[in-house]
Design a protein around this nucleic acid. Structure first.
Length: 571
RNA sequence: UGGGGAAUGGUGUAACGGUAGCACAGCAGACUCUGGAUCUGCUUGUCUAGGUUCGAAUCCUAGUUCCCCAGCCA
């Protein structure tokens, strides 16, 4: 190894293959050093985490190279698209933290596209076909070109084609009666080149251009030229469009217009969820979830409601990288990304999810203490607050065990623990109901441990648990979320079954009897907190007036839970 | 069956003929008023077989496996 690292030189961070291509293009002057990308969603559904990867890539690339990135709706199919989606998509892109240079609609180019179509007809490069959809499929043959044959209408005269096409536009024919097809090669090895359909007849109202058209261009006839019109340099898209690139190139070449460079990358797959728009729509429509923004959904509005931050999302997209390998990323990465972000910024508070009453026998009745609690140990500027303490407190049910294993550090008969920020308490006895369930625990406290400090005798406790004062606590509803699907790969299903058999029946557990510390009074929807020792939570939009509703964004890392699980496995 | 792509630890991603690195997960330990955070250490990898070369994840040849395409969807 030579002295590769010159002193003072920046360690060069490695570029993924797309940025390598761009830097190479900039070096050779292919696009005069210009970099322009775009995010081109179809407004037929809500954006999901997979789109976030594309958004971060496209907008991030423009930002990195001082270029432009537009938002363009590829709205070529009015029967599936809707203004609801157009609005939601814009909101989601903004939430992620990006601002487009221009907002376009592919439908803005419909007239230009139509003119270009007439030009191809004039040049003998397109023809009107009378075959039905089924017939077209049959004539096109299977994957093997040997089974293909050409359309009987392939050699119509230019005049007849032009006349028919104009009458298609004029609305003379019913839906599906005819199509305009590119005259390329009926027996091409690449099936996309076997005289693809350019226009279909669709008497439908378009969400953006209304009833202006009754013929609509196919995506393939629209996408490349739209990029060309906008002068996109690097047209970044997902792998499945590799097969279509030769077709886009053909159109651009026949038209003799500016040619962007298409680069394909692998779309994002995540464990324990589905990303297909069709499936997400089905989950919403058939009420498997409460809506597009159900916090269990991988939609951007869903994870937003769940409490994820845009910073965490962008960081996640940065970390997973960009390549052409269609792998699946472990959901744990996403969770790690939010934890990392929220750890630095979320205020710590105490909340008891499943309350168990603790009476401190030797604490004076009617007395209240105001104890200092740190708001965020990761951020001294966050300051501190007062938390009220009194004779009866709630602790977490899971923090008491009558017959605990050795490595259980929490409260148990005869054991002493620290109540966070308050006192050491020692369990005297537990009171049970007729069913044998512990309903109340009695403790004594040590006044010398006020503030949670160790007593003069140097006594130590292994566990510190959280609590709220019964007299001061605020009731709250807490929604605990888990993976939407019970299997890493929801599509891993038994013969003849459906992916929905893998839905996780415990993906939502609602706790209606939680208590939170009084400082949370007046918390607003969207506010994020760390409930100490439990996880990160945010105030849900269902919160109204006094009734607080929290969503669990993600649990804290829990080495005790891990231990428990491991021990259960041993048994 | 035709065409287009891709293969590096459990997962994802670097290395561009010269020490296989990073992150997540996992394991062990330190520290701790969160079994949190932080810190330290560890396990695990170049699809296979040949070849070129002083030297191959990288170049060549052959094979294997996986993904995508047969909408008037995008």
């Amino acid at each position: 190894m030579t002295e590769a690292k010159a002193e003072g030189s920046e360690p060069t961070r490695s570029l993924h293959f797309i940025h390598q291509i761009i830097e190479e293009d900039n070096k050779t002057g292919k696009f005069d050093g210009r970099v322009q990308t775009r995010f081109p969603p179809e407004p037929n559904g809500y954006l999901h985490i997979g789109h976030a990867k594309s958004i971060c890539l496209n907008f991030g690339t423009a930002l990195k190279y001082g270029g432009k990135c537009n938002l363009r709706f590829d709205d070529t199919n009015p029967v599936k698209e809707d203004i609801e989606y157009i609005n939601a998509i814009q909101e989601d892109v903004r939430w992620l933290g990006f601002q487009w240079d221009a907002l376009f609609y592919a439908s803005d180019y419909f007239e230009q596209l139509y003119q270009w179509a007439e030009k191809l007809i004039q040049d003998g490069k397109a023809y009107v076909c009378d075959l039905t959809a089924e017939q077209v499929a049959m004539y096109r043959g299977g994957l093997d070109p040997k089974t293909a044959k050409e359309s009987p209408n392939r050699n119509r005269s230019v005049e007849e084609n032009l006349d028919l096409f104009r009458r298609m536009r004029a609305g003379e024919f019913p839906d599906g009666a005819r199509t305009l097809r590119a005259k390329i090669d009926p027996r091409a090895a690449n099936i996309n080149l076997r005289d693809p359909v350019m226009y279909r007849i669709l008497h439908a109202t378009h969400p953006h251009v209304g009833d202006k058209w009754c013929i609509y261009p196919m995506y393939d006839w629209t996408h490349g030229q739209s990029d060309s019109i906008e002068r996109v340099t690097h047209s970044i898209c997902t792998l499945e469009f590799e097969n279509n690139r030769p077709l886009y190139d053909w159109y651009i070449q026949q038209l003799g217009i500016y040619a962007p460079q298409q680069i394909e990358f692998a779309r994002l797959n995540l464990t324990y969820t589905v990303m297909s728009k069709r499936k997400l729509l089905e989950l919403v429509k058939n009420k498997y979830v409460s809506g597009w923004d159900d916090p269990r959904m991988p939609t951007l509005c869903g994870i937003r409601r769940r409490g994820y931050t845009p910073e965490a999302m962008r960081n996640f997209c940065e970390r997973i990288g960009v390549s052409k390998f269609p792998g699946t990323i472990d959901m744990a990465w996403l969770e790690d990304a939010v934890r990392e972000d929220l750890n630095k910024r979320a205020a710590r508070v105490m909340a008891v999810l499943k309350p168990l009453k603790v009476v401190i026998d030797n604490y004076p009745e009617g007395q209240t203490d105001e104890l200092d609690a740190v708001n965020n140990p990761e951020d001294p500027a966050a300051g501190s607050r007062k938390v009220p303490f009194s004779r009866i407190v709630y602790i977490e049910r899971d923090d008491f065990m009558e017959n605990p294993p050795k490595d259980y550090f929490r409260l148990a008969p005869g054991r002493e623990v620290r109540l966070r920020y308050a006192y050491f308490v020692k369990c005297v006895n537990a009171v049970k109901d007729d069913k044998g369930e512990v309903v109340e625990v009695h403790c004594t406290y040590d006044p010398e441990t006020r503030g949670g400090n160790a007593p003069p005798d140097g006594r130590k406790v292994k566990g510190t648990i959280h609590w709220v004062s019964v007299a001061h606590a605020i009731p709250a509803e807490v929604r605990l979320y888990d993976h939407l699907f019970a299997k890493e790969n929801p599509d891993d299903i038994p013969e003849g079954q459906d992916y929905k058999v893998n839905l996780n029946p415990n993906s939502l557990v609602t706790l209606t009897d939680a208590r939170v510390e009084p400082s949370l009074a007046g918390a607003k929807p969207g506010n994020r907190y760390q409930f100490e020792r439990l996880g990160y939570f945010c105030v849900d939009r269902d919160t109204e007036g006094k009734s607080l509703v929290f969503n669990r964004t993600v649990t804290l890392r829990d080495s005790w839970a891990k231990l428990e699980k491991a021990q259960q496995k041993k048994k």
